[in-house]
Amino acid sequence: MSTKSAKHSAVGPYLGFGIQTVRLCARLLTEPRSATVYVEHDDDVSVHYENGTTLLEQTKRKAGNPLTDWSADLWKTIHNWLEDHGPISTGPASKLCLFVTPVHPPGPWAQALLAAKTASDIATLVADIQKGMTSARKKSPTYPFVKRFLDATSEEQLALAVRFQLICQAEPTEMIRELYAPSVSALLLDKIVAYALGEAKHRTDRLLELGKPGGINAGDFQDLIRLFVQSINLPAYFDFDSAPPPVDEINAALSSKPVFIRQLELIDVGKNQQLNAVSDYLRTVANKTKWGAEGILLPQSLDEWDANLLSRHAAICEGFEATHGHLDEVKRGAAIYAECRKLSVALQGKTVPDHFTHGCFNEFSDGKQIGWHPNFNDLLD
């Protein structure tokens, strides 16, 4: 049995989505990529695996405890599994899951069913149920459901018990949130959860409207959400609020003669511009470090940006080679540097400040990915 307490309260009931949609989405994001997850097909939610087996899940959202010994919710669920998917012992159902929210303590019979692993365990449970079968109980609405379990064969009773799982959670979206919490900022979690739930509902609703089973491939859905996370992880929520570094820090960095400063010296860039270059470089590094610490910056997320800047630099160099070949190499390098400083390049749709573009060029220069002087590699060596 799994029980989870909420660490976060979503705005509204599960961000405005029903419990079946939440569980559909959670299964889509956690099941094997080859699995297909359905809603309202052969159960509230079901998973069909590549090997032909299935997981059937009933969902219960109850203020009262649906796990007490004489709970109609508990026994109706068991009744439905036996009636609609029997015989359990030879059918394709490999797991029978009851999802309950909020968290409720299971009664003795539910606990015994979860713990049963042998025919002896089942016999003890059946005897205990029969012992409590008073005439008053036989008149209760729950009795027909309990009787269906008692009338089942011992093999089917044991097969049901072995496959039976119980998940209790105070906040159903927590399972989804836990998938992304370690790698994205808290600002993004609600957006990711809302998008995932919306896509799960939209896609299954569309299938059901067309008269088709509401099933989605787990791998395709996981890819969809991953692309969404990558697309929003930088543009809307990263910032460039780092202040210029202290003067003594800039001077110390300049005195250490990093490679990008040596590159500027090769083209006779003055002291003031060198100080600005150090400031831009340090601020850029601080921005990237901050995004990484906050979980905003995903691995590889700046690859396209880097490739764009490197391509622009190469194009400018080729253009100056063709049109300014009469300039000596120092002046040509200075002109290329000045031209690159004019560039305004969007980072995944977001306008960036000049210091970030300049700082990134200085990062490339520091790593010798680019140079301003045509013979920078030979001269630096």
Rank of each mutant, 00 (worst) to 15 (best):
143 Y>R: 04
39 V>E: 12
378 D>S: 06
340 C>E: 05
256 S>E: 15
269 V>Y: 02
104 H>C: 05
28 L>Y: 06
245 P>R: 01
144 P>S: 11
83 E>T: 09
308 N>H: 12
251 N>I: 01
54 T>V: 08
288 K>Y: 00
204 T>N: 06
8 H>F: 13
76 K>G: 09
358 H>M: 13
359 G>T: 13
76 K>P: 13
243 A>V: 06
323 T>V: 10
63 A>L: 15
324 H>K: 10
15 L>K: 02
378 D>W: 02
298 L>C: 00
40 E>Y: 03
339 E>F: 01
88 I>K: 07
189 L>G: 08
287 N>A: 11
97 C>E: 13
102 P>Y: 08
374 P>F: 01
130 Q>G: 10
333 G>S: 03
321 E>R: 12
128 D>Y: 02
130 Q>I: 07
135 S>L: 13
347 L>C: 07
375 N>K: 04
145 F>I: 00
163 R>F: 09
108 P>L: 02
235 P>E: 06
124 T>C: 05
66 P>C: 09
296 I>R: 06
168 C>R: 11
320 F>H: 13
201 K>S: 15
54 T>Q: 12
172 P>A: 03
116 A>R: 02
286 A>T: 14
205 D>T: 12
208 L>M: 14
171 E>K: 00
375 N>C: 02
380 L>N: 04
210 L>E: 07
126 V>H: 00
305 W>S: 00
84 D>Y: 03
181 A>H: 01
276 N>Q: 14
66 P>N: 06
294 E>R: 10
356 F>I: 14
70 W>M: 01
37 V>R: 05
267 I>W: 00
274 Q>A: 11
66 P>E: 15
7 K>F: 12
166 L>H: 03
167 I>T: 07
39 V>H: 04
259 V>Y: 12
111 Q>P: 02
138 K>D: 04
174 E>C: 08
285 V>K: 09
181 A>R: 09
318 E>H: 10
214 G>P: 08
100 V>F: 09
160 L>C: 11
378 D>Y: 01
134 T>E: 11
161 A>H: 09
175 M>D: 06
325 G>F: 15
133 M>S: 13
381 D>E: 10
105 P>C: 08
48 H>K: 10
177 R>N: 11
301 S>V: 04
56 L>R: 06
224 L>R: 15
238 F>N: 04
250 I>F: 00
22 V>M: 02
123 A>N: 03
272 N>F: 07
198 G>I: 09
318 E>L: 15
304 E>K: 15
110 A>F: 09
197 L>R: 11
170 A>Q: 14
299 P>N: 08
136 A>W: 02
325 G>H: 14
360 C>V: 14
39 V>I: 15
261 I>N: 04
325 G>V: 05
196 A>R: 04
346 A>N: 08
315 A>L: 12
160 L>Q: 07
24 L>H: 07
45 V>I: 13
225 I>F: 13
302 L>I: 06
122 I>Q: 01
238 F>T: 15
100 V>N: 06
233 N>T: 13
240 F>T: 05
290 K>W: 05
109 W>V: 12
35 A>P: 11
100 V>M: 13
152 A>C: 11
94 S>F: 08
345 V>D: 01
83 E>M: 07
282 L>A: 04
352 V>F: 11
274 Q>G: 14
13 P>Q: 08
295 G>N: 03
78 I>F: 08
352 V>P: 00
268 D>F: 00
340 C>Q: 13
3 T>Q: 08
299 P>C: 00
